[in-house]
Simulated assay, not measured.
Amino acid sequence: MRPVAAFKAMISLDDGMLMRGAFYLLLAAAATFVVLDVKDITEAEAARPSLEPAPELPIFLPPKGEPGVRGAPPVQPLTPEEVLRKPMTFSLVKGGVLHAEGTIDPGAAERFSREIEARGEYIKIVSLDSPGGSVDDALAMSKLIREKAIATNVGEKALCASSCPLVFAGGITRSAANNAVVGVHQVFNGGIDQGSPEQAMSSAQAITARVARHLDEMGIGAGLWIHALETPPNQLYYLSPAEMSEYRLTTDAIGVVGSSDG
């Protein structure tokens, strides 16, 4: 081969090697970017809040049993247990009645506030069917109900227990069916680490004081809260229609008991 031809062949060979080298370099770079992208996506997915359902709230449902059996309610609530254990939902029905059904989960007050903001002019009564739940959310809902001058109701064989009566107390007028199941017990932060026994006691006393003050502001008689303090959190004290009237938890249709302005 002539020197010139050999030189050109070497140049062509070098060009081919350079091209392949550049190609493999780009391929390696692309693979690196893919790995980094996958890593970023994986980390983002790991950081994203889990869509798993929240742990079941520590709520107490009335035990099954005929009236008269120890711990049994005067009548069995009509709503199935699996529905009562679900996070609270709101549905507007005829007559301006907003039906609030299910557990008062953390966040229920925020959803309730949005519901009131969206449909406030149509809502005349909040009808409750709940085993209770978050005390903070119950207090917030109750205050908003009183602020908006909405009535509250517990219907036929509906349940309003634990923190639910706090919501009920917010009604500008309040009514309960004769066979409604309304029960109270000690408030508690089940499942929440309160630290030392002293800290747990302090927290319980602070919650108790908030609840007592709220009921007083709503015009509810102190006797109601005494029954709650005397009843362990794994039991319910069921209020009779006469007791609800005596403690002003229920009102008549005329006038306002315990309005926010005194």
Rank of each mutant, 00 (worst) to 15 (best):
K64E: 12
E156P: 11
E243R: 11
P67R: 04
S196W: 02
L27H: 00
A28T: 09
P232T: 05
G96K: 03
L224F: 11
S12M: 07
A31N: 04
A109V: 11
I172L: 12
T103M: 06
R20D: 11
T251I: 07
D40S: 06
S240K: 04
I172Y: 05
D129E: 09
L84K: 11
A158P: 01
S203V: 09
R119M: 14
Q186N: 10
L98Y: 06
I226M: 06
T208W: 00
G65Q: 04
F7V: 15
L215C: 10
D15K: 07
L236E: 05
S12D: 10
V126W: 03
P74E: 01
A30W: 00
D14L: 12
A100K: 07
G170E: 06
L36G: 09
A169F: 04
D105L: 10
V257N: 13
V97P: 04
D136K: 08
P55Y: 01
P58Q: 02
V187G: 15
L27V: 13
E43S: 11
G195S: 03
G133R: 04
C160A: 14
V69Q: 12
R210K: 15
P55Q: 02
I172V: 14
N189I: 06
K86C: 12
A54P: 01
A72P: 13
A46I: 03
A31E: 00
Y24W: 06
T32D: 00
S175R: 08
S130W: 03
L128A: 14
G262V: 02
E230S: 15
N189G: 12
E66D: 14
L18P: 01
M244R: 14
N234C: 05
A200V: 03
N178Y: 00
V181P: 13
G191H: 02
E66Q: 11
A151K: 09
F90N: 11
M88T: 13
L84C: 13
V4E: 12
A30Y: 00
